[in-house]
C-alpha cells in the first residue's frame, strides 16, 4: 500500500507538468486549430522567467565591510543585494528566498505578451496553411527561442532553489496515518501538484463560468456562427493563446526547483506532451488533463524495481507504448471529440 501511494505521488508531479503543457496545447489547438510545436519552448521561457527574476532580485553592489578583513588584512568587500538596501536585511532575504513563487507574478504578464505577439506576428498567417506547415514553422520558432535563451543564459542548467520552507521533504506516511518513514516526499513536488490543480481549476472555471469563456467555447464549437453574431472571435482566440502561453510559462516557473532549467528542457517535455494530448484526445481539455496525470502515474509505476526486474527498460518506453496502443484502438484518444483532426 505504501509503495503504491508513493508511486502515485511520484507520478503526480510529472503528471502535473504534462497536464499543464498538454492543456495549453489543447487550448491552442481547440481554439485556433494550430498544432504548436513551440509550446515546449514557452514552458522553457517560463522557467527562465524565474531564473531572470531571481537574478534581478540578487543584483548587488559592492560595499566595504569595515568590521571584517580579508586574508591580506584589507577591509573585506561584500556584495550586498539592492533588496537589502530597499527592504532591510530580513525582508530582503525573504524576497530572494521566495524568488520562484514571486516569479509567477512576473511570468504571467511576460508570457501573455509573448503569446499574443507570437499569435499576431506569426501564427495568424498559418491558419489557412496545412497542419504540416504549422508544425514546421512552430518547430523553427522553438529552435529560435531555444537559441536566444542559450545565447543569454548559456548552455548549462541553472539551479534555482525553492524557498527554504519548501526545500525539505516531509513524511507523507505519518500524515496519512501509515507507519512513519515509509513515504518520504519532497514538499515542493506537493506544492507543484497543488499549484497545477489550482491553475487547471482556474482555466476550467474561466471557460465555464465567465461570459468570455462561454464565447470562447462557442467559438471552439462553431467559429463561423459566432463570428456571424457580430462577436470578434479572433480577438478572444488571441487572448486564449496568451493564456495558454501563460499556463505553459507557469508550469515552467514552478518546475525550476525540480529540474534546473536549461535551454532544451522544453523540447524534452514537448515530445511527451504531444503524446499526452494525442492520448487524451485532440481538442479535449479534460482529456488532456486526465491523460497528463494518468501517464505521469503510469510512468511512475513502470519505474518500480519489481516491474523493471520483469521488463527492464519499461519505464523508458511505457508512455510511448500506451500512446501507440491507444492510438490504434481508440483513434480519437480517451476523450477526443468527433470531427477534430480527422482527415
Amino acid at each position: 500500500m505504501e509503495a503504491i501511494i508513493l508511486q502515485i505521488l511520484n507520478g503526480l508531479d510529472k503528471g502535473s507538468a504534462y497536464a499543464l503543457i498538454a492543456m495549453g496545447l489543447t487550448l491552442i489547438f481547440g481554439t485556433l486549430g494550430v498544432v504548436n510545436f513551440a509550446h515546449g519552448a514557452l514552458f522553457m521561457v517560463g522557467a527562465f522567467c524565474a531564473v531572470t527574476l531571481s537574478r534581478i532580485l540578487t543584483l548587488s553592489h559592492e560595499v566595504v565591510d569595515p568590521t571584517r578583513t580579508d586574508f591580506l588584512g584589507n577591509p573585506l568587500k561584500v556584495d550586498v543585494p539592492y533588496a537589502y538596501d530597499w527592504f532591510g536585511q530580513a525582508t530582503g532575504d525573504a524576497i530572494i528566498d521566495w524568488a520562484v513563487p514571486l516569479s509567477i507574478l512576473f511570468a504571467v504578464p511576460v508570457m501573455i505578451i509573448i503569446g499574443v505577439v507570437m499569435e499576431r506576428g506569426l501564427i495568424k498567417h498559418f491558419y489557412k496553411r496545412p497542419h504540416a506547415d504549422q508544425i514546421l514553422v512552430t518547430f523553427g520558432l522553438a529552435i529560435v527561442l531555444q537559441e536566444v535563451i542559450k545565447y543569454f543564459y548559456g548552455a548549462n542548467p541553472i539551479p534555482t532553489p525553492a524557498p527554504q520552507a519548501f526545500a525539505s521533504s516531509m513524511d507523507m506516511g505519518a500524515a496519512l496515518g501509515f507507519e512513519a518513514g515509509q513515504i518520504i516526499y519532497p514538499i515542493w513536488r506537493l506544492v507543484y501538484f497543488v499549484f497545477a490543480a489550482i491553475v487547471i481549476g482556474c482555466v476550467f472555471a474561466f471557460l465555464q463560468f465567465t461570459t468570455f469563456g462561454m464565447v470562447v467555447r462557442a467559438g471552439m464549437a462553431d467559429r463561423e456562427t459566432v463570428g456571424l453574431l457580430g462577436i470578434n472571435i479572433d480577438k478572444r482566440f488571441t487572448i486564449m493563446f496568451g493564456i495558454a502561453a501563460a499556463v505553459a510559462g507557469l508550469a515552467g516557473v514552478m518546475y525550476t526547483p525540480i529540474t534546473s532549467p536549461n535551454y532544451h528542457m522544453g523540447m524534452d517535455f514537448l515530445v511527451l506532451s504531444f503524446v499526452v494530448v494525442v492520448v487524451g484526445g485532440m481538442g479535449s481539455l479534460p482529456g488532456a488533463v486526465l491523460a497528463g496525470f494518468l501517464l505521469g502515474v503510469i510512468e511512475a509505476f513502470a519505474s518500480l524495481p519489481q516491474v523493471l526486474d520483469v521488463l527492464p527498460g519499461l519505464n523508458q518506453i511505457i508512455i510511448f507504448l500506451v500512446a501507440i496502443v491507444i492510438l490504434l484502438t481508440r483513434p480519437r484518444g480517451l476523450m477526443g471529440r468527433k470531427g477534430v483532426m480527422e482527415e
Binding site: 508544425i135 515530445v271 503524446v275 518506453i317 501507440i324 483513434p331 483532426m341
Partner: peptide, 21 residues
Amino acid sequence: RRSGIYFSILTLAFAQMSYSL
C-alpha cells in the same frame, strides 16, 4: 493506420522508444 499529426506522433513515439531502448 493514422494520418496527419497522429502519424507524426506515432513515428516520433517509435523513434523515441528505439532511442531509449
